[in-house]
């Protein structure tokens, strides 16, 4: 028996919206410790890793480890039938091939359940080694989204460089070029509005902007985003999910041959 209950159903909607553009089908792996997902986009350039710890749920029961294959667009559509304040419960039998989403209104005067067929998805888990990153930038998530969107008006590739001076985002295209520099800024009143740069060594990497724009669909999940980079490693773009875990996106760089 699997039973996951979340008072803030809206959170689950945001999680699905953050993944469905990048990944179509994925396995939700549930165990006593929580729910996780690891999947690559169809071109294997980006990887998304989601973790929702069991202690972040209002009720979490998972008697047996389960890997439940779902079409993320179908789940996202289904969750759109829930109100943002609805309590969402996921239920699945140990041997069943369906999952039930139950939506309860906050006043408990409306209860809906939607049953969805599970899919058999063959996917292998990749081992993601622990790495010491050369540069880690924490910044407001809306600012990061804005930068990616603004640069995409000029080019389709971004060079992200971290130096002592700050983090520089550069692009070039047919109509011209653009540079946006963000300096460390920790003097603002609210920590979620600050930009913090931890740099061991300067680093400069090139990425396809369209993936970064897909990642920024996670912006509603967190006020801040953390970007970690090292030469010859995929960058990591992490959005924390309050009290529950994270969604991390790994993006392979473009490399000169």
């Amino acid at each position: 028996m699997l039973e996951l209950r979340l008072l803030q159903g809206g959170l689950l909607k945001k999680v699905l919206e953050a993944m469905r553009e990048l990944v179509t089908d994925a396995n939700f792996d549930c165990s006593r410790s929580g729910c996780s997902l690891q999947a690559m986009d169809s071109s294997h350039v980006a990887l998304v890793a989601l973790l929702l710890r069991s202690d972040g749920f209002d009720h979490f029961r998972c008697d047996r480890n389960r890997s439940m294959g779902m079409n993320l667009n179908h789940v996202a559509k289904l969750l759109r039938c829930a109100g943002n304040d609805d309590i969402v419960t996921l239920k699945a039998d140990d041997d069943g091939d369906t999952v039930t989403f139950m939506f309860e209104s906050p006043k408990q005067d409306k209860i809906a359940d939607f049953e969805m067929k599970l899919m058999d998805i063959q996917s292998e888990h990749l081992g993601i080694p622990e790495a010491e990153y050369q540069a880690i930038v924490k910044m407001p998530s809306q600012e990061f989204a804005r930068i990616c969107r603004d640069l995409s008006t000029i080019g389709d590739t971004v060079v992200i460089s971290v130096t002592k001076e700050g983090v520089k985002f550069s692009t070039k295209g047919d109509i011209g070029s653009a540079n946006i520099v963000c300096r460390q800024n920790t003097t603002v009143d609210k920590p979620e509005e600050s930009t913090v740069i931890e740099m061991k060594d300067p680093v400069s990497l090139t990425f396809a902007l369209r993936y970064l724009i897909s990642f920024t669909k996670a912006t509603p999940l967190s006020n801040t985003v953390t970007v970690s980079m090292s030469s010859d490693l995929p960058m990591v773009v992490e959005y924390k999910i309050a009290d529950m875990g994270y969604i991390r996106y790994y993006l392979a760089p473009k490399i000169d041959e």
Binding site: H44, E124, L126, I128, P129, A208, Y250, A252
Partner: peptide, 14 residues
């Protein structure tokens, strides 16, 4: 022109 790498170049199956 820089060439797009894939994730499998960096991470191996478990």
């Amino acid at each position: 022109k820089p060439k797009q790498q894939t994730i499998s170049r960096f991470f191996a199956p478990k």
